[in-house]
Nucleic acid binder design. Structure first.
Lengths: 338, 338
DNA sequence: ATTAGCACTCGTGATACGAGAGTGCTAACA
DNA sequence: TGTTAGCACTCTCGTATCACGAGTGCTAAT
């Protein structure tokens, strides 16, 4: 569909535009990239590429900039060169063993990615359908108030405070959690009914209180919410791409709410490196931005680490950065010498 | 020091500037606020007030705007009218009983404050010197990896993953935590040595593993870190005060890092409503912004909920908003009907 | 098929200019 | 002595104008 030379022109334009941030003209391309051809030749090619939808002009008689389709072409060619999906998969799994726990790991990953990329680092973990629970703990906070701690398989911690119909002692709560923890590692849906029956039979004293506690537990197990982390966003204010405030505002608003992050996670359809550019995004707020993210499924949870930036992002650098961050995330530290 | 009329002029100028966002001239004041006096009179007063440091001119022959000192005057007069510190104190204490736990409560508080004030809602809790622990739980995640859950008094949960020198079974870990939890409600420093001796004596089997676990626990108890929450920041991009990007960028950067939030908490020196304006702030990033925050000490922890915005903030509205948010934070929900 | 040449377009930055808002000062006034 | 009217002066802001430069599209020559 595209001639060899057209492809060369395309890649040159995208590369140069990412580098400089200014629309690139035929003369620039002919001088710096395809030195064997005159600017007029390039001009003709660019005109064709525009008609095909790979390039566009901000205004008549200015250079060309890539369309989403143009970026896609470029990104695919970069991905072919530096396919790091296999590494990413390995390393993202080790997040669960990070010394700050999976949440701490994701938080610091998003933070680091923000810092070194100068875009916005993001990270999230979201349980899939069949999540298994690892442990439950009830902590009596005060009269009838109980803190419910649930550890999902993989180390993700959920917490909730609830009020029970009776004031139960900590000893009794311990007894209750011990009985539930016998089923550690099971899917909730599998053990739900038998667990209920078992608990109800054994602990008749506080039947309704136990029932309430189980209801709360079920609430967490059935729809455990996404945990999302966003790194520093302030760096992006420097970028020339976001000179006009309304654009960056829409993007910020999107990233600041949980639904936005959930959508980003959802858009990572395959394991390894995912790249979603501009118009390819569903949400209007992302239509002029791009996401580069590594994702994997592990322990019944989908984990994602990535970067959100302008369409005109330094994709190559971001991809290698993500890979490097994943590699250098400290797993759990070995026992230090005393 | 200030005559009655000078005070009236001051309050009028600040009020009008907060309302309109534009520097206010003598004519405006004489027409809308001190109708009994001509603009020339006001002009003279304003000139004096400028000399005294309450007002300044952005440029010659433009209206006046308040200095930090001027805002201080205004804010103190507002605080005198609507002193809500007593309510705030009551209500901030009930945060611990919020159905999402104290962390969830703070997060949603900062979120709501952002939304209704259109500035940036902030919230944080930081343990003071003598924090007491409520409960400890060790969860075996995998071979030698253990998730350490610590609940501080008041319901604040800290978590950490660590690797122990031996692979201990969950039963053994349960035994260990049970022995520690006997001391629930005590200050760490008080029980530290006796606890160590007691554990070491009782559990000789895995001495060094237990010692490692206790070390980790100590790490959390001795310097438990601040937990800070920042609401949506995107609204502020609309404000005319932040048209120039570098200013808002510095502010964002400040709020995005934990040290920044820690400094805000530290600057809340008294219980109830604290207001720190512009130059009164220590950090350069806040020199042209202001903080309005309600804070209280409870359970050996300092809790703060507030709003960060431009110096030209609608202080009156923000104060009442914070008060209202604190009142309407749902405490733990009562048992619902089955 | 490629390239040189040329007329045309459009954004950008500099400059100028007038309108408007506000001040400071002086002189008149109660 | 405190207050007010009047007036000249200052500074910002928006608009219009103009020249420049970069880039395109088209045509004709190679």
């Amino acid at each position: 569909m595209l001639t060899e030379r057209q492809l060369e022109v395309m890649l040159s334009v995208v590369y140069e535009y990412i580098r400089s941030g200014e629309s690139v003209g035929s003369r620039t391309v002919s001088r710096r990239y395809l030195t064997g051809h005159s600017s007029a030749t390039i001009r003709n090619e660019m005109s064709d590429l525009e008609e095909m939808g790979f390039l566009k002009q901000p205004h008549t008689s200015s250079g060309r900039i890539p369309t989403t389709l143009g970026y896609r072409l470029y990104v695919d060619s970069v991905l072919q060169r530096v396919d790091s999906s296999k590494y990413s998969k390995e390393w993202i799994k080790s997040l669960g063993e990070h010394h700050k726990g999976i949440e701490g790991a994701l938080e610091s990953a998003s933070d680091i990615l923000s810092r070194v990329s100068n875009y916005v680092g993001v990270a999230a973990v979201t349980p899939l359908d069949k999540v298994k629970f690892q442990r439950v703990d009830f902590v009596r906070l005060g009269e009838r108030n109980v803190l419910l701690l649930v550890v999902l398989q993989g180390g993700l911690v959920h917490q909730k405070v609830t009020s029970l119909p009776w004031d139960m002692t900590q000893e009794y709560l311990d007894d209750l959690s011990r009985r539930i923890n016998v089923f550690a590692g099971c899917e909730w849906t599998e053990i739900k009914t038998s667990l209920k029956a078992y608990i109800m039979e054994e602990l008749q004293d506080y039947k309704s209180a136990c029932a309430a506690a189980l209801r709360e537990l079920e609430g967490i197990m059935i729809s455990p919410s996404i945990k999302a982390f966003t790194g520093s966003m302030s760096h992006m204010l420097n970028l020339p791409d976001f000179q006009d405030l309304s654009r960056i505002q829409a993007l910020y608003e999107f990233l600041e709410q949980e639904e936005g992050m959930a959508e980003l996670v959802k858009s990572c359809s395959k394991e390894g490196i995912n790249i979603i550019i501009g118009e390819e995004n569903e949400s209007p707020a992302m239509k002029r931005s791009a996401l580069v993210a590594a994702s994997t499924v592990c322990n019944g949870q989908m984990t994602m680490i990535g970067v959100v930036g302008p369409e005109r992002m330094d994709y190559e650098k971001v991809i290698t950065t993500i890979d490097r961050v994943l590699r250098t995330m400290d797993p759990v530290p070995e026992e230090e010498a005393e």
